[in-house]
Computed example of a mutant assay.
Amino acid sequence: MSGEPSPDGSGDAAVNDSADGSTDTEWEAVFWDIGGVILALDSVQGAHAEFIAELCERHEVDATLEEAIETWRTTVGNYFREREGTEFRSARDGYHLGVEAIAGEEIPCEEWEPRFDEIVRDSIKPIPGAPETIERLADRDLHVGVISDVDDAEGRAMLERFGVREHFDSITTSEEVGRTKPDPAMFETALEKADVSPERSLMIGDRYDHDVKGAADMGMHGVAFGAEDGPAVSYRIESPAEVLEIVDGQRERTD
């Protein structure tokens, strides 16, 4: 997979602009975030709303569905905001707090988790075109990996649900590393697993600071899919399939 040394003899990957504005980088790896890139976030929100509706009915909660959803969002949001820096916090623990805040009493995990998992499993959907693109990338001489701020088991279950787990060469999660993006440890761990150069690696993400800039700070090339614009964006795509054009050298850099 490695290309020739750069003209200055440094050995770094060459990212040279050709006459038509494309690049001739020989890419070694493509890393994907999960939420908002492979996983459609609105399907997750729908699953949570369905679960909350059932929770309210089961525990006779004196609140509208909208009020209960807002309680869930506030409780889970505060749980994550209270962490120190990029410290990992399990989403499952946050959901447990959300359940108790809505029900107004302590609810054992074994009472709500099975139904929660069932609803999520049946409701989540992939971003259109993402599974097909991942499968096509897997047929190429590239390392295809995941770098995601998810609980390890949940992340792997989502990839299995979408039929793409087998196409990934590596999966790096925040639970495994103990940190969340943009902590350098997330990207360093993934790059070490893949044994690839950051300069020849793409990172596809939907959040500028966490995914795109975090990757760029490590020398990787950030691919913004729904993420805000900024100097760290090397490429911007409107659909997952456009990643194939980048890999094939058919897309211009944004800078």
Rank of each mutant, 00 (worst) to 15 (best):
G104F: 02
I102A: 02
S18W: 04
D206W: 13
M158S: 04
H96Y: 06
T64N: 11
G226S: 14
E28D: 03
A13K: 08
A194S: 05
D206Q: 10
S174L: 03
P126I: 01
S234Y: 12
P131S: 13
H221L: 10
G129F: 08
I107W: 01
E176S: 01
P131D: 11
V61N: 04
T180I: 07
S174Q: 03
F168S: 06
G145I: 04
F31M: 08
G145S: 05
S2W: 07
A153K: 03
S148M: 08
D169F: 00
F162T: 02
A13Q: 11
S239I: 03
E113V: 04
R251Q: 12
L191P: 01
K125L: 05
A227L: 13
M203R: 00
T23R: 11
T74P: 00
G178V: 02
D217C: 13
H210R: 15
I134Y: 05
P198F: 08
P240Q: 09
A63F: 00
P182F: 01
D122N: 13
G104I: 03
D20R: 03
D149Y: 09
E82T: 15
D24P: 02
P114R: 09
D151C: 06
V44F: 04
I52R: 10
K125Q: 12
E106S: 10
I119D: 00
G9N: 11
E242A: 08
D151F: 04
A53Q: 13
E132A: 14
I171C: 01
A68K: 08
T75Y: 15
D139K: 05
Y235N: 12
D183W: 01
D211H: 07
S174R: 06
E67Y: 05
H210A: 14
S2E: 07
E26S: 00
D149W: 03
P126F: 11
S123K: 10
V196Y: 07
K125R: 11
V61C: 05
L55K: 07
E228K: 15
T25C: 08
I237K: 15
V44W: 05
V30L: 06
E166S: 05
G36V: 01
G222I: 13
V196A: 09
I124Q: 09
A215E: 00
A101N: 04
T23G: 13
D62S: 08
V243G: 12
T23Q: 10
I119N: 01
H143G: 00
G219I: 10
S22Q: 10
P114C: 02
D211C: 02
R136C: 03
G9I: 13
L202A: 00
G178F: 02
G205D: 04
M158N: 07
G9W: 09
S6Y: 14
H59G: 06
V196H: 07
R207M: 11
S22V: 08
P240Y: 04
A190E: 01
I237D: 01
Y208R: 13
A224C: 14
G222E: 12
E245M: 06
